[in-house]
């Protein structure tokens, strides 16, 4: 091994779409930190795309050293199919290996013409809801589960919850295959009254884009705690001789610097004490539940709701 090789190491971080800006800044911070600490230069390469596609790419052989995806189900699938890392990966880092979180909120048109306040307003006749297909979009599964949990708590039974989500999805005029397509439908094509969105993306839309003046965010009374988890792909990291760097890369996500960055990029930090006060003001108080609380984990939720023949499929079965 030559000297140059020992001094510069490369990590491949396979992530999903909306983390692009966050990791761009974080990678710089991490390299500086790691260089100061060990004298080793770490260069982080990023791969972004739809979460499901990214997971399949890793299953098919993409040499990821770390994964920072949108839901635990995709990471579970990789572990199960490839054995590249243990299936108890989620217990390796604090807070279920999710260093930053988000939730599902409503994006409505300026002035909120349909007067949408909470989940109940989404099932009213004449209200058009835009959300991607939860079978093809990982992000959209959070939307569905949030609606389900609200209905189950509010109306007290599973049958009522099925009725509620059926009604809601009948109000969906266009079901895109991914979050990008849905954003396009709602923002560019002007279709629909309310867009179910991750909070970080809704905040990005209302603070940065030129469309800022056209939309506002409505926070429902109850929503889901979206936990985009991270893990090291142990076998790859070991083969690439970057195991130490990969572990440190993820642990450093819980540091004050990284937590502040996460809040800056509209994710809720797990350690809010490290974030800027003005960034934190963007996150209103809302009752949040986790997938584990209500559904007993992603595997269970996936099996019952989204797999073929599951609850979601029944919504569209003829004769209902």
């Amino acid at each position: 091994m030559t000297l140059a090789e020992t001094k510069t190491k490369t990590l491949l971080n396979v992530s999903y779409d909306p983390t692009r800006e966050f990791y761009k800044e974080y990678n710089v911070e991490f390299s500086t930190f790691y260089k100061a600490r060990t004298g080793i230069d770490v260069k982080v390469r990023q791969s972004h795309g739809g979460a499901g596609k990214q997971a399949r790419a890793v299953i098919d052989g993409l040499q990821a050293d770390v994964l920072t995806l949108a839901l635990a189900y995709d990471i579970d699938a990789i572990s199960e199919r490839t054995g590249l890392f243990d299936n108890n990966w989620q217990s390796r880092l604090p807070y279920s290996s999710a260093p930053y979180t988000s939730t599902i909120v409503f994006l409505v048109r300026k002035g909120n013409p349909k007067n949408i306040k909470d989940w109940d307003d989404l099932v009213k006749p004449g209200v058009q809801v835009i959300t991607p297909n939860p079978k093809t979009s990982g992000g959209a599964r959070w939307n569905y589960l949030a609606a389900w949990a609200y209905a189950e708590q509010r109306y007290g039974s599973e049958d009522k919850a099925i009725e509620f989500v059926s009604q809601l999805y009948r109000n969906v005029p266009v079901m895109d295959s991914g979050a990008r397509g849905s954003t396009n439908t709602f923002v560019r094509n002007g279709i629909g009254d309310v867009f179910l969105s991750w909070e970080n993306e809704a905040l990005l839309a209302t603070t940065k884009l030129s469309d800022a003046a056209e939309f506002e965010i409505i926070v429902p009374s109850l929503s889901i705690l979206a936990q985009p988890p991270v893990t090291v792909v142990h076998k790859h990291a070991k083969n690439h001789n970057v195991a130490k760097e990969a572990n440190m890369y993820l642990e450093y996500l819980y540091s004050p610097v990284a937590q502040r960055l996460a809040a800056k990029h509209f994710y809720r930090p797990v350690h809010p004490e490290f974030a800027d006060k003005k960034d934190l003001q963007r996150f209103p108080d809302v009752t949040l539940f986790t997938v584990n609380d209500v559904f007993g984990g992603w595997q269970q939720a996936q099996k019952k709701h989204f797999n073929d023949g599951g609850v979601f499929d029944k919504i569209y079965q003829p004769g209902r």
Binding site: G52, T136, Q302, N307
Partner: peptide
């Protein structure tokens, strides 16, 4: 529009299956 039973094309269903691994 991709509404099941109405405007869902076969290639989309294939992608749907792939998303479920």
């Amino acid at each position: 529009g991709n509404i099941p039973m109405v405007s869902e094309i076969t290639p989309l269903l294939i992608i749907t299956k792939l998303e479920q691994y």
